[in-house]
Computed example of a mutant assay.
Amino acid sequence: MALNGKVPAGNLTEKWTKYRASMPLVAPNNKRRLDIIVVGSGLAGAAAAASLGELGYNVKCFTFHDSPRRAHSIAAQGGINAAKNYRNDGDSTYRLFYDTIKGGDYRAREANVYRLAEVSASIIDQA
Rank of each mutant, 00 (worst) to 15 (best):
S120T: 02
V38C: 06
K84V: 12
S120Y: 03
I80E: 02
W16A: 11
A76P: 00
R70M: 15
A76F: 01
K102N: 14
G104K: 00
S73P: 08
V59P: 04
S92W: 01
S92Y: 01
G40A: 05
N29H: 09
L43F: 10
V39P: 05
Y86S: 08
H72S: 14
W16C: 09
D35A: 14
A83F: 06
L25S: 07
V113S: 10
E118H: 06
G45K: 01
C61P: 04
R20C: 09
I36A: 04
L25V: 11
G78P: 01
M1H: 14
G42H: 01
E110V: 15
D89P: 05
S73L: 04
E118S: 07
E14Q: 09
D91E: 08
K102L: 14
L52R: 00
P28G: 00
H72R: 11
V113F: 07
K18E: 06
F64W: 15
F62D: 07
F62G: 05
A46T: 08
A48W: 01
N85A: 09
K102F: 12
L55K: 13
A50D: 13
V119G: 08
N112Q: 12
G78M: 03
G45H: 00
V26F: 00
S73V: 04
T63K: 07
A21Y: 00
R95M: 06
G5T: 03
G90Q: 01
A76N: 00
R33T: 12
Y98P: 02
I37F: 12
G45S: 02
S122M: 11
G104M: 03
V59W: 02
Y86E: 09
Y114R: 06
A27F: 03
A2P: 12
R87C: 08
L34T: 05
D105V: 14
V39F: 07
T17Y: 05
N29I: 15
N112Y: 12
L52C: 04
G45Y: 03
R32N: 07
